[in-house]
Nucleic acid binder design. Structure first.
Lengths: 241, 241
DNA sequence: ATCGTGCTGTGATCCAGATCACCCCTGCAC
DNA sequence: GTGCAGGGGTGATCTGGATCACAGCACGAT
């Protein structure tokens, strides 16, 4: 908790610096004001479970800062990562709209701020604001899109190297801003363990380890701690092969 | 086209006998009236492609009668069936809401009636009617739910027999209404080819053939043409094993 | 320094299911 | 009839990747 002070909590949505970039926050003053009056902001440490698969719906979370991992577990205890939610996303929407138990478990991957809005308040709110309804539809569409991507990846039995390369390429779309990097090497930050990567691509931890080793040997990427350097063209080649 | 006369087209949504059962049609008279004025009804023969993956969005289809198969294709030409849409569902929503190309190909599995509404009209309509916005959210939620199911099925490497059994069990929730059936044998109608079933569970045609053969030998089901008799408890046993 | 605990690397083994290569239907067109 | 196309059955073969079983290694707690 020593770095608590370093984490700035944003209490007021109206003056939030990211307001315009974010689907759900980019609303007229009066609407945002009303929405804001329903929320409770909190900061959650890394590893917090915001909601659990199977739990009765309580409300939604708007992720303000940080990242969260959405996963679903099978009867046999295996779990799959569905996607990583970025700041600005609304979590728990499907459960709230359908009034069914949460379909996935949400776990913060870093210290994150999220605004909670109770189900009842939120439902009333979207019924009164067609504008917000549209945003809800857009977030749901995004969820669907990610899910379809995942289905394509899992179902079209690409080999593990191919799936892994695809995943890394997606990650490399949000590169790290480092000063001195060789051209053609994209630096990214990876905080997931190999175990979690395995859950993402639907394979075993060992295979991820072997495949990454293979990639390193072939010069497709370099790994130093949580920072990876990506050789994009080389990886793209793996995908099309 | 000899049986054209046998197919009754429903022109008026207000007097449609199914109106109340269907998410998207169960609306107050005035709203439904307005929605209706935007639509064009048509009857499509089996095998019609209502929309193609990658196509620019034109509008949505409300499926009135019949069934449609939603599938997505990989670069290598393999395709996966995402789900079978039932009457009352709205198709093409994600594309219209996000204004992105259609994410899946929709093909009618039987002669089907569908009402088409152009993108622009529909978007304007939902922005003016918060009530309809909510229905849109519900349909999208349903899409997500199906997609997550599929991910769980594909990703949690259940064996092929298990996945197949699960699929058949889902089908057996809509049994055929036959007069004389033995107790414990649920009759269902299956119009998909083995190839299509393979695409559904993400496996090869041969494996489907072998697995079904196995099920028949073990008395889990009987197949006569397009009618199958399901021994539910036996199949449930396959799933939990 | 000495544990313990969580992550990563790697070898050995084994099998479900993909793939290839046929054959047999049944229905339809000519 | 004959030919042919689209489905369905089945055997033989081969392999990707799961699984088991360890062994390092980093890092924090004691």
């Amino acid at each position: 908790m020593a770095n608590k002070a370093a984490f700035r909590i944003m209490e007021n949505c109206l003056t939030c610096e990211f307001r315009e970039d974010r689907l759900f926050c980019n609303l007229p003053d009066d609407v945002l004001e009303a929405l804001q009056s329903l929320k409770t902001s909190s900061v959650y440490p890394k590893g917090t479970l915001l909601c659990l698969e199977g739990q009765a719906p309580r409300g939604i979370y708007v992720l303000c800062t940080g990242k969260a991992k959405l996963s679903t577990t099978s009867a046999e205890g295996k779990s799959i990562i569905l996607r990583i939610a970025e700041p600005g996303e609304v979590l728990g929407l499907t459960a709230i709209v359908s009034n069914q138990p949460y379909e996935c478990t949400v776990e913060t991957l870093e210290t994150s701020q999220a605004n909670f809005i109770p189900q009842r308040d939120f439902l009333r709110f979207i019924q009164e604001n067609a504008e917000v309804g549209m945003k809800v539809a857009q977030q749901l569409t995004h969820n669907c899109h990610c899910a379809y991507q995942e289905i394509r990846s899992l179902g079209h039995s690409n080999s593990v190297p191919e799936k892994l390369a695809k995943l890394i390429l997606v990650w490399s779309e949000h590169p790290l801003a480092l000063s001195h990097t060789k051209p053609g090497e994209i630096p990214i930050r990876v905080t997931l363990t190999q175990e979690e990567i395995a859950q993402f691509v639907g394979t075993s931890r060992e295979t991820v380890s072997r495949t990454l080793g293979d990639f390193k040997r072939k010069g497709f990427l370099k790994i130093k701690g949580a920072t990876w350097w990506i050789n994009k063209p080389a990886l793209e080649n793996v995908v099309t092969t």
